[in-house]
C-alpha cells in the first residue's frame, strides 16, 4: 500500500479490493437509456413492483366488484360468451410459446427464440381479437356497458386487461425488434445476450402475469359467484 491515494478508485481498491473483471466502466454514460452499470436485475425488480402496482389496480376493481355484487338488487350475472373459452386457451398457449422462446434464447438460439416470440405476439393479438369478438357477441344480445352492473364489470375488466395485454404485445414487439437488430449487428456478445435475457425475462414475467390475471378475472366474473 505504498501507492499514494489520489482518487476514489484508490480508496475502493484499498477498502474492497480491485473491481471484478467484466464490469463495464465507461462508455454509454449520459444521455443513453441506462447507465452502463445497470445490473440486469433492475428489469426484473422493476417489473415485480410494476406488477404489484397493476395488481393493486385490479384489486381495487375486485373490491368494487365484490361490494357491488353484495348490494344485489339489479345484479344479473351474464353467461360467459362461448368465445371466451377459446380466448383463454389462446392466451394460455401464448404463455407456453413465450416460455419456449425464453428457453431457446437462453440456449443462444436467437433466431428460433425470436420466432417463438413472434408467435407469442400473434397469439396475444388473436386473444385481443377474440375479446373484441366476445364484446360483439354481447352487443348482439343487447348487453351493453350500462345494461347491468355485471355487464359493466365485464366490459371494464376485459378492457382494462386488454389494454395491459396490448401493452405487453407492444413490449414484445420492441424486444423482437431489438433482438433482430442486435443479432444482425453484433452476433450477440455475452453482455448483450445477458441484457437481452434480462429484458425478455422481465417481459415474460409481465406476460405470464397477464395470463394469470385473465384466468383470475374469468373465475371472478363467471365461475365464482
Amino acid at each position: 500500500m505504498a501507492k499514494p491515494i489520489t482518487s476514489l478508485r484508490d480508496f475502493e481498491t484499498i477498502a474492497v479490493g480491485p473491481r471484478p473483471p467484466g464490469r463495464p466502466e465507461d462508455g454509454g454514460r449520459g444521455g443513453k437509456e441506462q447507465p452502463p452499470n445497470l445490473p440486469e436485475g433492475s428489469y426484473r425488480l422493476a417489473m415485480l413492483f410494476a406488477l404489484a402496482s397493476i395488481g393493486m389496480l385490479f384489486l381495487g376493481f375486485t373490491s368494487a366488484y365484490i361490494v357491488r355484487q353484495g348490494l344485489g338488487g339489479d345484479w344479473q350475472p351474464l353467461d360467459p360468451p362461448a368465445i371466451l373459452w377459446a380466448n383463454t386457451l389462446m392466451l394460455l398457449g401464448s404463455s407456453v410459446t413465450l416460455h419456449r422462446s425464453r428457453t431457446l434464447l437462453r440456449r443462444e438460439a436467437i433466431r428460433e427464440g425470436v420466432r417463438w416470440l413472434s408467435l407469442t405476439m400473434v397469439l396475444g393479438l388473436l386473444f385481443l381479437a377474440g375479446q373484441y369478438g366476445a364484446w360483439r357477441q354481447l352487443v348482439a344480445q343487447g348487453v351493453y356497458l350500462n345494461t347491468n352492473p355485471h355487464s359493466s364489470f365485464f366490459y371494464l375488466l376485459t378492457a382494462a386487461h386488454g389494454v395491459h395485454v396490448l401493452g405487453g404485445i407492444l413490449g414484445l414487439g420492441y424486444i423482437t425488434l431489438r433482438g433482430w437488430r442486435w443479432r444482425l449487428i453484433l452476433m450477440g456478445t455475452p453482455d448483450r445476450l445477458k441484457h437481452y435475457d434480462a429484458l425478455v425475462g422481465a417481459a415474460a414475467l409481465y406476460w405470464h402475469f397477464m395470463d394469470g390475471l385473465w384466468v383470475y378475472l374469468f373465475i371472478l366474473l363467471f365461475l365464482w359467484r
Binding site: 404489484a52 402496482s53 381495487g60 376493481f61 368494487a64
Partner: peptide, 13 residues
C-alpha cells in the same frame, strides 16, 4: 406504487 392504482381504479369507475 400501491395506493395510486386504487385511486386510478376509482377514477375510472
Amino acid at each position: 406504487l400501491l395506493a395510486f392504482p386504487v385511486l386510478l381504479a376509482g377514477g375510472i369507475l
